[in-house]
Write a protein that binds this DNA or RNA. Sequence first.
DNA 1: CTGTTAGCGCATTCAC
DNA 2: GTGAATGCGCTAACAG
Lengths: 377, 377
Amino acid sequence: MSTTPLAATRRATITDVAREAGTGKTSISRYLNGEMSVLSPELRARIEAAIERLDYQPNQMARGLKRGRNRLIGMLLADLTNPYSIEVLQGVEAACQALGLMPLICHAANEVEMERRYLQLLTTYRVEGVIVNALGVREETLRPVGGGGIPAVLVDRSVEGLVADMVGLDNRAAAELGTRHLLEHGFDDIWFVVQPFEQVSSRQLREAAFREVMRGVAGKDEGGQGGARGHTLVLNLADPEAVEHALAELDRAIDAAGRSDGAVANAIDNAIDNVSSSSVGKPARIALFAANAPVALCLALHLKARYGADWQARVALLSIDDPEWAELTGVTTIRQPTYEIGYRAVEFLHERIEGVQTTARDCLLPGELIVRASTSR
Amino acid sequence: MSTTPLAATRRATITDVAREAGTGKTSISRYLNGEMSVLSPELRARIEAAIERLDYQPNQMARGLKRGRNRLIGMLLADLTNPYSIEVLQGVEAACQALGLMPLICHAANEVEMERRYLQLLTTYRVEGVIVNALGVREETLRPVGGGGIPAVLVDRSVEGLVADMVGLDNRAAAELGTRHLLEHGFDDIWFVVQPFEQVSSRQLREAAFREVMRGVAGKDEGGQGGARGHTLVLNLADPEAVEHALAELDRAIDAAGRSDGAVANAIDNAIDNVSSSSVGKPARIALFAANAPVALCLALHLKARYGADWQARVALLSIDDPEWAELTGVTTIRQPTYEIGYRAVEFLHERIEGVQTTARDCLLPGELIVRASTSR
DNA sequence: CTGTTAGCGCATTCAC
DNA sequence: GTGAATGCGCTAACAG
């Protein structure tokens, strides 16, 4: 049996160690803070021994109280269910590790009220900064942070009039990338499916970019992508009834597109039914563009239930985010540089905490298109 | 413009509030702790106003220091990448919410060294308890917790000689359930695939239960499940080379099984080739039993890459854990009561924190078999 | 090089 | 009912 420290009941304090080492608290404190040069080797050894003997561990809370900094930062996540979140988190953790910070992770489970509560809780714990990836990102809820409050950096969202850094995907570029990919592969009936916009700027940006590209090709009648139509479908995942309605609308479109022979035979159809590219009378090649992984999953599950395992023969699916099941099902995706997003967010925050006072910065990282069978057969 | 508090630079303290309200700190403290009955309505109103005006929020750290309890608990997770973890986490969060606790989430990313560091960090922050779901769950690493140290509850793992509660899946029953299911559906060549056992008791238990069931049927020659063979394959996901080797072994078995006509036609094969059920000369119906979701994903990805989208016609896959892609790909699973596991873990911990001193308890919850196309066609 | 002193923000006796 | 005093565990001047 190894030497179990006596202090099984109460943790040793700095005072205990000082007494045990036969010295004052200051020296212990110095030892703890690495000010070795000012300690005689002899004293140092005694302290070391005492700490060992008492199994002493300094109380971070007390340190924080005194120093005014506790090395804690808050990480507010809207939805841990979204693989995006946990990937970003990994970057955050790595950066924290490197910078000696400790992330306090708060999961708001898509509830704005919870976000508010957690934000308050974080300030109450006097975190030195917060990384926010939430829904209710608006000036009022974020009052306590940014600007005059504690340093903050926004992930995947931006809000006007708030002094805070922001890091995330280059949403415009990503949405354009995806839309162009679909157009180039001959899809001419494209549905952009997105959760309710609320205050989430990334959703708005992605949809806007999609719409803009589609508007650009709407006029052109020649070329492979003439007359393509774009639609936006809002899918409120939190409301089953709304989901059902939205999916029903989608089903009608898919059924209509597949009327003549099914989408797989479209190339042939085009050759035969070679009328003008007006969308009437010609079976459209239909594609779904999911604004993120949760939406994509919802769509895929529905389509599989409705059209069977071979659903991808009828509809193409492209998604922003690259969940683990994408490779498995052959769904084309746009992968976000999630790890880097998290890492950079912490770096930004750290700079602000250390007092590097700059104006609010935006860091837009590019997405990577990963073409899979879904859109390329 | 609403009244922005002046204290943009320094947070207000209890002293500020006392001065602002023209009273002593004690009354403020009483107000904060809800001892309303001891405050004159008049003073109470003044305090309320002062707090409002200064946007005062009590410092939890200081409170914790004084009270000796900070309402923080640690949640140590081996692998956030595993959907199991984040589902458990949701239960944990809900329970914490209900009990007024704040979980400090630590992600060890499958590194034992990190687990050690985080455990130390947690004690350093004087958390009131820890919930541990880690790899290196052994007596020595857990020295600081359990027994004489801070209260602890283990999730999905148990370790001898440690005074701590444990809550998790009934691994024996779950593995038996899955194995029996496969046998009943005529699979007679079953591979149990699991990560290296290390200190993880659940892996050991699952494999042991599987092996026991297989041993039970190995002798019987009659009945639909006579002569079925069971194998255990260890898949070290952390080592790509090891994975490759293991998968190659699996491939050989699958190729051998599918030699005559492919697994789908097995019922017919059985009727024609009606020799004794000795496993030679008869194409076996092969099934993979994944010990958890990460393993299942690895297998599925490999099989898809090797045998194409239709891989499930050749091999059946059953997995403990029910990841989001299971429904999408039609893989049979055994779902764990993850949410409840998390919730119960916090409840147990809370009781211990509150001093309910009992002997170590084990809480085994049942898994639910979800039959999908993979094993039932 | 080392020890003494004085708080950090708050809760808790204990008097008034 | 209310407030002044004391100390939680630690750090940061200050002295020696």
